[in-house]
Simulated scan of single mutants.
Amino acid sequence: MRKKIRRVVAATAGLALALGLLLAVGNEYRFEEERVSVPVPGGSLEAVVAHPEGTTRGLVVLVHGDGPVDATYDGLYRPWFEAAADAGFATLSWSKPGVGGSTGNWLRQDMDERAAEVSHVLDWASAQPGLATGTVVLWGASQAGWVLPKVVRSRPDVDAVVAVSPAVNWLRQGRFNLLAELDHDGAAAPARREAVEVSDRTRELLESGADHDRYLARTTDPEPLDADRWGFALRNFRSDATADLQASADRHVPVLLTLGTEDRNVDVAETGSTYRRILGDDVTVARFRAAHSMARPVVEDSDALGLLTGTFWPRALLAPGVLDTYRDFLEGVAPG
C-alpha cells in the first residue's frame, strides 16, 4: 500500500511539474506589457500597452465587444497582442468604464459615446512620445462593429480596421442568435414558441420606450434584464452599421473582416455580404471554422476544455489560421 501511495504521490508531483512547465511556456509572450491610465472626460480608463520586443511601426487600438471586459479580457487577448507585436505593432487596450480601475459605467453608453471614447483614446495616444502612432489600426470584436465605422468616418488618422465577428443590425442579430441557440440546444416546438414570444414582447417594449418598471410588469421573460441592462438596450437597440459603413467607405480604409462558420451570435452571411457590397475591394473577408469569438468550436462548447486551454495554452483557443491571418494583414498595412 505504501508503495502504491508513493507512486501516486510521485505521479501527482510529476503532473504538477509538467502542468507548471506548460503554463510557463504557454503564457510566455513575445511582448512587454505596460499599464497606463488614459484620461477621458469625466474620469480615466485603466489600460495596457503591449510593446513589441523590436522596432515598433504602428499601433493597434482595441475596441471591445459586449460585456464587462477588462483590458486583457482576463488574458484572452494576449495572443492577439502577440500576433500584433510580431508584425511590429504595439496594442493599446483598456478596461471598459466601470471595470477594474476605469471610471464610469459601460452600460450607460450608446454607440456614439463608445465611438467618442475611442476618439479620446486616439487623441491621448497621439500625444505619447513612447507610442508610434504614424500607422493606426482599429481592432474591434462583435458589438464593436457598430463603433468602428463611426470612428473611421470621423478620424483621418485611422489607416486600417480589423473587424472580428461584427453584426450589422442589432434587432436582426438578436433574433438570429435566439434561433441559432434554440437550434443548437435542440429545443422542442413549445419551447421555441415561448422563446420567440418573449423576444417579440421585449422588442415591442423597446420600441414603445418602456421604462424598467413597465418592462418588468409586462415581460414574460423568466430571467428579466436588470435596470442597467434594460437601459443599455433602450439606448442601442436601433443600432445598424449600414449608414456608418457607407460613410466610412469614402476613405477606402483597408478592412480585414474575420468570420466564424460556427458563429451562433451573428449572421455571418449577412455581415459578409453587407461589408462586400459597401466596401468592395477595400475589404478582405477571412472565414474560419470558428465560433463567434474566433475560438475553436470544441473549446467554445466545453467550459472545462476552454478553461484548461485558456489557462495552459491560450493561443490554442483560437481557430487555426486566425492569428497568422491577423499578423499577415498588419504586416501589409501601409504607413499612414
Rank of each mutant, 00 (worst) to 15 (best):
L205W: 12
L206K: 09
L206N: 01
E207H: 05
E207R: 12
E207I: 03
S208K: 12
A210F: 11
A210L: 11
D211S: 13
H212W: 10
H212N: 03
H212P: 00
R214V: 14
Y215G: 00
Y215R: 07
Y215T: 01
A217T: 01
T219Q: 08
T219W: 11
T219A: 07
T220Q: 13
T220I: 12
D221W: 09
D221L: 07
P222I: 06
P222C: 10
P222V: 10
E223W: 08
E223S: 09
E223Q: 09
L225H: 09
A227T: 09
A227H: 01
D228I: 06
R229T: 11
R229Q: 09
W230N: 05
G231I: 00
F232G: 04
F232M: 14
F232N: 15
A233P: 00
A233T: 00
L234G: 07
R235A: 15
N236Y: 06
R238K: 14
R238Q: 12
S239R: 12
S239T: 07
D240Y: 08
A241D: 01
A241Y: 00
A243F: 10
A243H: 10
D244L: 05
D244P: 04
D244K: 02
L245T: 00
Q246V: 15
Q246S: 15
Q246A: 15
A247N: 13
A247P: 09
A247L: 11
A247R: 14
D250R: 15
R251V: 05
R251S: 11
H252T: 06
V253W: 00
P254E: 08
P254C: 15
P254F: 08
P254S: 05
V255G: 05
V255D: 05
L257K: 03
L257A: 07
L257D: 01
L257M: 06
L259D: 08
G260W: 05
T261A: 12
T261P: 08
T261N: 10
R264N: 12
R264Q: 14
V266P: 02
